[in-house]
Design a protein around this nucleic acid. Structure first.
Lengths: 217, 217
DNA sequence: AGCTGTGAAACAATTCACAGCA
DNA sequence: TGCTGTGAATTGTTTCACAGCT
């Protein structure tokens, strides 16, 4: 009897399961096997069963998993049953797209405060938020009990904004700036970087004959 | 003497190295050790050396790596010295933000065609592109020699758009829709999904006392 | 019969540690 | 001395295969 850390790769897959199960719920499918779920997500059934087994025994032998029950359990594990609050830093084009993105709110995340360094934008509305100066960030985080900072400023300012968020005690940061910011290890950091995705893609696109992906050892 | 496939994780790290080396170039630093580079990126020096060793011997013992040389080599490996062309499908708020994002063009990617299903938008300009109907997608891909499709349509339409791109022979797809699309395995797919990032983040945020991350085995 | 849950086996990635070169 | 490049060791992840439940 010993303690086992849950691998981060497993945690990264749970939201994918949540999404698939939500879709199955919408389709009024109430039971699913690891086989079926795996076929849907292109993940092996064994991996799904192993992933879930880190958290408990959610299935029934011979039947599979009850979709609604498993969905509730996973949402609970991921703490998706509460509303998480976020502040957005940077209201340029990217920031405006983020704030208007309709996908966050139904998924437990709400942007409740928007800030920018640029004083000429202060006071403007975007969506139902007033753009506030950086000097009010600390106050916003405190008074609105903000958990997550979303960084949408140019690369040059990203590290200082991240530092500022950390000082003001957000717990997680979603960073859209094209840098890998340094954060203390009690902060959960996620980076969104389409350019990195494209630049790794082209390795495979450029070498279509299938021989350059191997090397002589 | 045998052949070794290069692991995908290695390929995913190369663009990160490219970015760091580009920054060092801007700072007029001409030599860097795996130690220094690793400290900058929070990656172990051994991993950097191992990654690079899949492709050749770029360093000098006792000195380190020549920044300019290594950068050129990596850009060459990733095929970043050509201009890649992309078409954008979906010109809603997200699509507009993507098309106006200034980070793609300097990094070898150019959006040269924008399409939407919504006929009321056809003919409008965004940036320097005219919004075209889906019916002209095939023609655009062919005439503009488009390599990459960028999907920014609602989840419900994403799979059909992806299928359409695949039929018209793009080689890579950058998908912003919140689904895991099915593609044939000769297509390189990258997904951008901030909601999944946030939903895995909250696992760690919700369980701050540090004991729930372990289970009894 | 059909499917889960899970140790054990297989495979993959990372780190170690050191020979060898500048 | 300082650093690379790389086999070997270690650590992490996925798959296998089957006991056991429904």
């Amino acid at each position: 009897m010993e303690f086992v850390e849950i691998p981060e790769v497993v945690i990264l897959r749970l939201p994918v399961y949540v999404r698939a199960l939500t879709q199955l719920t919408d389709e009024c499918i109430s039971v699913v096997s690891s086989q079926q779920l795996g076929a849907h997500l292109q993940i092996s059934p064994a991996q799904i069963r192993k992933d879930l087994s880190y958290f408990g025994r959610f299935g029934k032998q011979g039947r599979g998993y009850n979709v609604g029950f498993l969905l509730r359990e996973l949402r609970d594990i991921l703490c998706l049953d509460r509303q998480w609050t976020a502040c957005l830093i940077g209201v340029g084009r990217l920031g405006r797209a983020i704030i208007n993105y309709p996908g966050f709110t139904p998924e437990s995340f709400k942007i409740v405060s928007a800030h920018d360094h640029d004083t000429s934008q202060i006071g403007q509305m975007i969506g139902d938020l007033v753009i506030q100066p950086m000097s009010e960030l600390a106050e916003s985080i405190l008074s609105k009990d903000i958990n997550i900072g979303i960084v949408a400023v140019p690369a040059i300012h990203a590290q200082e904004v991240v530092d500022c968020l950390v000082e003001n005690k957000v717990s997680g940061i979603l960073n859209y700036a094209p840098i890998v910011p340094k954060v203390s290890d009690n902060i959960v950091l996620r980076n969104i970087d389409p350019v990195l995705s494209l630049q790794s893609m082209t390795f495979y696109l450029g070498k279509r004959d299938g021989r350059e992906h191997i090397r002589r050892a």
